[in-house]
């Protein structure tokens, strides 16, 4: 599984990265977590509101920090 966190590196992006890392560990998934800070790349996903969560190249959350439970649900859904 390929997870990307889009955002210029502010507090919200850090929180989202933390939630994603924790969720991946809890679920025991094999996943790569990559931070995307380049604006051109972020806009390339159609994202204007950061932070955004991208799972397997699909934007699933944008403009807010989802709770750990929500990230867990999203990751579980994507791993099936």
């Amino acid at each position: 599984m390929n997870i990307k966190i889009l955002g210029p590196g502010c507090r919200n992006c850090v929180n989202l990265t933390k939630a994603a890392t924790t969720a991946v560990a809890e679920l025991g998934l094999e996943a790569s977590i990559e931070k995307v800070e380049d604006y051109t790349a972020i806009l390339g996903y159609g994202v204007m509101s950061t932070p955004a969560l991208v799972i397997n190249e699909k934007v699933v959350v944008s403009g807010r920090v989802p709770t750990l439970a929500e990230v867990r649900t999203l990751l579980t859904a994507a791993s099936h």
Binding site: Y39, T40, L43, G44, Y45, G46, V47, M48, S49, K58, V59, V60, V61, S62, G63, R64, T67, E70
Partner: peptide, 25 residues
């Protein structure tokens, strides 16, 4: 570079599809 950026087609609107509980959260 701003004028060369291409927008992707996946734009999702963060204001949509939230439950009231999520908004409270």
């Amino acid at each position: 570079f701003v004028f060369e950026v291409k927008l992707g087609g996946q734009t999702i609107d963060p204001s949509l599809g939230l439950t009231f509980g999520q908004r409270m959260q």
